[in-house]
Design a protein around this nucleic acid. Structure first.
Lengths: 154, 154
DNA sequence: TAATAAGGTTGCTTAATGAAACCAGATTTC
DNA sequence: GAAATCTGGTTTCATTAAGCAACCTTATTA
């Protein structure tokens, strides 16, 4: 049967995964962050099947993560550009990258070295913080229960 | 054909997605962060098919994201608990949650209110920062090229 | 002794993935 | 000016994975 969707889930993580939680969407967003904008370039850099790429690009455009722009001087030529919503996936991608670098480093080459364009300094390790900026682990947080919230759902 | 895997990809994001990038794995990790540990509880709270749950739990255990513990006093009774590696997905989950809350809020109820257990203060918005703690956007960073790294791959 | 619970496994159906072929409009090349 | 090329797809088809429901085994409870 069809893959289950979470459009109406009360969990925002589930709803987020609904938009970018498949195998390709986040990688497409990542490529876009690297500067890729054209259909053929996504196809070649990711090695994704073309029909799947069409499907994912359309879905990302529908979900306002990418914007399809006709940049053709003579004849149609399209670019897929990140929207603000798409750019706001930056922390998600960085969090995944740092986790991957920590636990599944590539044996052959060092991890990609992301740096601040202005200072040349490396990007800081992401962490969940409290109001004062102190690091928080899973066990340090709780869900403030809402009186109206009768049932917890996925 | 089979879904493409990224085990050998040079991109750590791709390798990370290989482990937790399908529709269910991250939600299972999320549930585990909420405190769920038992097979039936995962099944009921997520509404996932049992065979798929078996598959995902096994994969997460294989990838050292979860640990399967026999807690049976008399007879087998199992718990699936987060490992350190699994707990380190906290920033990923929080980043996704904050993104989801910002762009796809649930119309009926307010977003889950995550708070610091110690102070009761809400969790701070995640952001990518430079060495001094200033926020960085996608456009503020670049990849420090490695001399040995001849080809960029997905 | 029967019923229930935990933790799966098996079979079946349907949906999604991937490869490759094809296609149409525009452009460059010969 | 005809042929080849590029871009951005669409179509077809074989394979795989997801979802559902039924079943199964061991252990506990009624």
């Amino acid at each position: 049967m069809a893959r289950k969707r979470f459009d109406d889930s009360s969990c925002s993580v589930a709803r987020a995964l609904n938009e970018v939680g498949d195998w390709w969407s986040l990688l497409i967003v990542l490529q876009a962050m690297y500067g890729t904008r054209r259909f053929v370039d996504f196809q070649q850099e990711l090695g994704i099947a073309r029909n799947i790429l069409v499907d994912r690009l359309c879905r990302l455009v529908d979900n306002d993560v990418l914007r399809k722009v006709d940049v053709g001087e003579h004849g149609p030529r399209f670019e897929y550009r990140l929207t603000d919503k798409g750019r706001d996936l930056f922390p998600v991608v960085i969090a995944l990258r740092q986790w991957g670098d920590k636990y599944n480093p590539c044996p052959e080459k060092p991890p990609l070295d992301l740096r601040d364009r202005r200072t040349g300094q490396p990007v800081r390790q992401l962490e969940v913080q409290d109001a004062e900026g102190n690091p928080l682990s899973v066990r340090d947080v709780f869900v403030q229960e809402d009186p109206q919230d009768d049932t917890k759902q996925a």
